[in-house]
Amino acid sequence: MSWMVWTLPTAGFFSGIALILAGMTIWQHFSPSIERKGFLPLSTTRGDRLFIGLLTSAYIHLGFVGFTEFHVLVATGVSAIWMVVLMRWG
């Protein structure tokens, strides 16, 4: 595994993604998602909103890291709030 030059933060990041995907799968199995229309301009399922949330979170991080002086964890916090809003009302 040393050729993959793992670090603690990246390992944590990928474990997090894997956990979210596994969790979503189990959630979907016990209570299937129903497609609905929220504040987004298109109707989405739970998985769609997760994808949109992750992608926009990546851009939020890039924006914070690239063009502001804030610590990267501020971007993570903003993304987390955005993710909850998106999953609940998106």
Partner: peptide, 11 residues
Amino acid sequence: MTVVNYSVQDV
């Protein structure tokens, strides 16, 4: 994943 690992380090 390897690319992600490289992106946060100076290897």
